[in-house]
Amino acid sequence: MQTQRPNALFRNLTAKIAALPMIATALFVFVGCTLWTVYYSFTKSRMLPSDKWVGLQQYERLWNTPKWQIAVENLLIFGFCMMILSLVIGFVLAALLDQKIRFENTIRTIILYPFALSFIVTGLIWQWVLNPDFGIQQVVRDLGWQSFEFNPLFNPDIVIYGVLIAAVWQGSGFIMVVMLAGLRGIDEEIWKAARVDGIPRWRTYVFIIIPMMRPVFVTALVLIASGIIKVYDLVKAQTNGGPGISSEVPAKYVIDMMFGNQNLGQGFAASTMMLLSVAVILIPWAYLEFGRKKHG
């Protein structure tokens, strides 16, 4: 038998000590470092962190910087398209694979392999495939369509769509896997009932299956959204923000400011804006997801 129970702090002491790395990570890194950055975004930090408080000045300057404005605009376009495309492609692929077709495993393996590759590798592959002199544009021209124009990586107006093509290639397979798991979780009886009622397949999908899969869609959306905010390596490898500054993204702006331009205050302010946008997505989701569970 154990000795008399000592005071509460020492009960389970081994477990507490074993969990120390996790506690330290949660408190020092996730809470501590985040608060630190938010605090210093209100200071005059440049090369080194400074304690001189300047209020919202960094934020004013941030929103007046063209590079940041372009970065935000790019992120909005990229984010919107990425969400729609990933969800649509992911769902359609999952629905196709769910038709009990042959070679399902092979097809899934082919669609998912890009997800194993890093964003650097992805960016470099697509930099080459979209190369104007040798890539898709040239191949189509060689086929006889001389005036064919598809050169996203060197056209400031559409460069972000070039990045988008690569990002969808890399990430949509993962969404397909999530969707497929959701589809497989749907009761076979529902399909039978719909068939008995003579409802066409596509209508069953649109009006019955998709509404039933709402939680899966929400999860997929959260996964895509948190990936979008983090986009950095892909742009770094594929375009390095170019041509000019036309494919900059916020995550790259932060790193450039902190480690390239020695302008820490701008980096802190920009990263705080990133945190804010995550919170805007995350808090309502967490509320819906966990709030409901407790009440229900």
Partner: peptide
């Protein structure tokens, strides 16, 4: 949380 927030 975006890594950029905690990196510095």
């Amino acid at each position: 949380i975006p890594y950029q927030v905690m990196i510095y």
